[in-house]
Amino acid sequence: MTGFLTRRRFLVGGTLGAGVLALGGCDALEQNEDVDAVLRSAEKLTMEAQRLLLGQGTLAREFSPADISPTFRVNGTQSPDSEEYAALHENGFANWRLKVDGLVNRPMEFSLADLRKLPSRTQITRHDCVEGWSAIGQWTGTPLGLILQAAEMKTEARFVVFHCADELEKTLDGSGVYYESIDLVDAFHPQTILAYAMNGEDLTVGHGAPLRLRVERQLGYKHAKYVMHIEIVDSFSGLWGGRGGFWEDRGYQWYAGI
């Protein structure tokens, strides 16, 4: 959830190196389907190489309380511009519910109180934004894996989609509504949590109240804020641009591993 940057800024080479970066200079070919296919293939190889080198369960670095940044910039939306969100905020999110559905055997809803009753995880990690800044913060929330296990995903489930309250563009087809997604490897990673607290306090609106995703091995735009609805899917084909996220539909990489 951050300002738009061109595709070339995201072609991080990994083991693919200069061969991938060479494609990034071809802005005139941005809309070419063959080029897009090559870029998506390169991204997939980068993801697989990174996971092979690091291991699927390797933890992102965690820090001590003394390392927490004195200021932590708000990334992306400052506050969702919707009457529904305004009403929920005014009531202290007492009426807010997290919906979980899609390819599950047990569709579920959770209030904030429900989530706080579940086992929690607290972690102090660094947030890396594609705009070039970083900050260290403490996050507390419910491990996403617990929610997915409770909902009993179906065997064809492949991705977890996070539908959010904010709209970054007003469009007739609904594609301005913010959404993000991760695969099941990242969904069940021990540091992937649905955070409701930051630095020991309830999330502020700027930082995603009442609930945001923390997926610590990926860049900041993957950390969806204002999460309202989790949908389990087998593909992105029915989701707006079909790339798995608001910014991905506009040229960002789907896998933003660090």
Rank of each mutant, 00 (worst) to 15 (best):
G137D: 11
P107F: 06
G55D: 07
V185M: 02
V12H: 11
R73Q: 10
S41W: 13
C129I: 09
G176H: 06
G176N: 05
G132F: 10
V227D: 06
H163Q: 09
V104K: 01
S64I: 01
M153C: 11
G102L: 03
S175F: 04
E62D: 09
M228G: 02
K170V: 12
H189Q: 05
G145W: 03
T155F: 07
M228P: 00
S69G: 08
Q50C: 03
H89G: 01
I147C: 07
I193W: 10
G244E: 05
F236Q: 03
A28E: 14
F10G: 08
K117V: 02
G206R: 01
S134K: 09
G244I: 10
A113N: 14
K99V: 13
A209E: 11
Q253I: 04
G13H: 06
K170N: 14
A256Q: 08
N32D: 15
G206L: 04
P190F: 04
G242M: 05
H163C: 01
Q31D: 15
G257V: 05
V215H: 01
E83G: 00
G251H: 08
E152I: 00
R250L: 11
G25S: 11
F236W: 09
V205M: 10
R121K: 15
R212Y: 02
R116H: 13
E167S: 11
S79H: 14
E33C: 02
R250A: 09
